[in-house]
Design a protein around this nucleic acid. Structure first.
Lengths: 210, 210
DNA sequence: CACTGTGTCAAGTAGATGCTTGATTAGTAG
DNA sequence: CTACTAATCAAGCATCTACTTGACACAGTG
């Protein structure tokens, strides 16, 4: 603690009262904690400690644990929507999705937790953006199918679901990977290899552009 | 409270002292609760209530929440090992795995929770059985590959992981399925359809026997 | 019958957890 | 400077939760 009160410091340099910064600190810490332990396993005290702020600020800004979780979900939804540009070839899109395990592991884990904590259509408000984005992917799959590159018996929507699930495997099934491959499932080398293999699979299925 | 003490009921009819039965009641209830809420989200009180026994018996028989979880995992590991007979064609094996979402939803969810709660090789003791079982699957994939039915650039282990992850999608990504397909992801009709599609995928990849 | 060990239960405990209250400070407008 | 609001914090509270304690009931044994 400084001996004198730093009144009107010409530059706000390291200002201690900064709502925006505090909000972001809490959000970042919460994303990490929720991603690591899920909703039930996360302690608000741990979030506050990680953010380096007083625990009470979680209520001040987000109206409690539940509200904070909502805020996190909202934020991840936004980030998710920036993910894919639909003019990219399908195998490449899938490859990038698998690489999200490295670029944004918290987001992927949040999505995985969400699946297990999911109870029904009502509790997950406004998942329209993701659905819409995936719909575009499905449309592209269907286009390839109609071009005769993918057999007609394959349901494009189901195939898309399968690919998404497969792309998340390094996050959702690390214990299986570890047991089978004897590799660290989160090691960048493996994730890259896996993502590449996923692209190979997509190409085998005839999902690359003409 | 009954007015008289019912001494020496001639038939043990509905015997209240039955260790084996009690153990099983607790195990079943615990499987359901852990599957529904994960380890952190499960309350021992809820398990006892569901089992219809006193909460304390969880300690008497399983030495607490952690021990009970271990017991559950052990039990699921056994059941899992009875799952596949390796002389079945690969597409059929995968199809059956996907159908486990109907036959043993708790087990599949337990596996999914395990992935997210997984921290490293040390905390998941003895996953050898599963690894071994999957290894046999991988070997079969490799056999097809060497027979020239699957391109050489595809890594059999990675492909297997992808298929397992995909097979679990109705359990691990219900929110995505719901959003995209507008169907109840746990409805038997959909699970059957999805499992069938998975078999189609496997066949497209050349995984069926000669 | 008394004695013993196992299974069952009700009540209680220490600590954690989410949340509230009330006060304190920094920044700003009059 | 004064007054006021927004942001921050420390301490407290009610409740929950995993776990403990101690007592009771039943069955088998001598």
């Amino acid at each position: 603690m400084s001996t004198s009160k730093p009144r009107r410091s010409p530059k706000p340099q390291e200002r201690q009262r900064d709502p925006d910064r505090t909000r972001k600190l809490i959000l970042d810490a919460a994303a990490a904690e929720f991603a690591a332990h899920g909703f039930a396993g996360t302690r608000t005290g741990a979030i506050a400690a990680r953010a380096g702020v007083n625990q009470q600020l979680i209520w001040y800004y987000f109206d409690g644990k539940e509200g904070l979780y909502q805020a996190i979900s909202e934020r991840w939804r936004q980030r998710e929507s920036e993910l894919v540009t639909s003019d990219t070839p399908l195998p490449e899109q899938i490859r990038r999705y698998a690489l999200e395990a490295l670029n944004n592991p918290d987001g992927v884990r949040l999505l995985a937790w969400g699946g297990l904590e999911y109870t029904g259509p009502e509790d997950d408000p406004d998942q329209a953006p993701r659905a819409e984005r995936l719909q575009r992917f499905i449309d592209q799959v269907r286009a390839q199918q109609e071009a005769g590159r993918l057999p007609a018996e394959m349901d494009p929507a189901c195939l898309t679901i399968m690919l998404v699930a497969a792309a998340m495997a390094t996050t959702s099934l690390p214990h299986v990977i570890e047991g089978v491959c004897r590799v660290d499932p989160r090691a960048p080398e493996f994730v890259h290899h896996y993502a590449e293999q996923l692209a190979v699979l997509a190409r085998l299925l005839g999902l690359d552009p003409p």
